[in-house]
């Protein structure tokens, strides 16, 4: 049996290729993201949709508004295929993979910036510019979060890499050095 990630990668790749041919990638992405929001807001939805004891016709009526609301034909089809294959719980993963390949193609980088106090717009812009140059991206989408435990400085988290400039880490390093 395929594991979830491999499954999601295959479906997102197929969807991306077919939307690219039709020049509908952007439209598709926004559709997918809005549907994903519905799933994220209702965590029980994907569970119900893959529950074998839940009647099929009710599943269809549940998903119907989502399908009808969608403008992109291929997104509609994806939902139908997933429902038929009883793989609705994979949907969010597929969207995440889709977004990842879109970002990769267009060199867009998402980053979380943790700081003790909310960053000003000017600071954000500076951070974005520096980060853009560092990772070689066209666009950096910065998400500022507040974390009091850092004491000072900023931590940037972006896809598996952490750029840690927080005072907390520095103090811990000094502690390690003194104790060794």
């Amino acid at each position: 049996m395929l594991d979830k990630i491999t499954f999601a990668k295959r479906y997102s790749k197929a969807l991306y290729e077919v939307l690219e041919e039709q020049n509908q990638v952007e439209a598709g992405l926004s559709e997918l993201l809005s549907i994903k929001n519905v799933f994220d807001d209702n965590p029980s939805l994907s569970r119900v949709l893959t529950d074998v004891s839940f009647p099929e016709d009710k599943k269809e009526s549940l998903i119907k508004p989502l399908i009808d609301n969608s403008d992109v034909e291929y997104v509609k089809n994806l939902l139908k295929v997933l429902l038929g294959a009883n793989k609705m719980d994979e949907f969010t993963l597929i969207v995440e993979e889709f977004e990842r390949s879109y970002n990769e193609k267009n060199k867009i980088v998402h980053a979380d910036a943790l700081s003790v106090v909310p960053l000003s717009d000017e600071q954000k812009q500076k951070l974005t510019d520096v980060f853009k140059a560092r990772v070689g991206a066209n666009e950096v989408i910065l998400d500022n979060k507040v974390d009091q435990s850092l004491i000072g400085g900023v931590i940037l988290k972006s896809s598996n890499v952490i750029f840690d400039g927080s005072v907390k880490t520095k103090i811990n390093n000094i502690k390690k050095l003194l104790l060794s």
Partner: peptide, 19 residues
């Protein structure tokens, strides 16, 4: 003594790859 121990400390930006 503390100064000597701290001589190895570098104020670098820690870049870590995580999973």
């Amino acid at each position: 003594l503390i100064k000597q121990q701290l001589s190895g400390y570098k104020d670098d930006l820690a870049v870590e790859e995580t999973g």
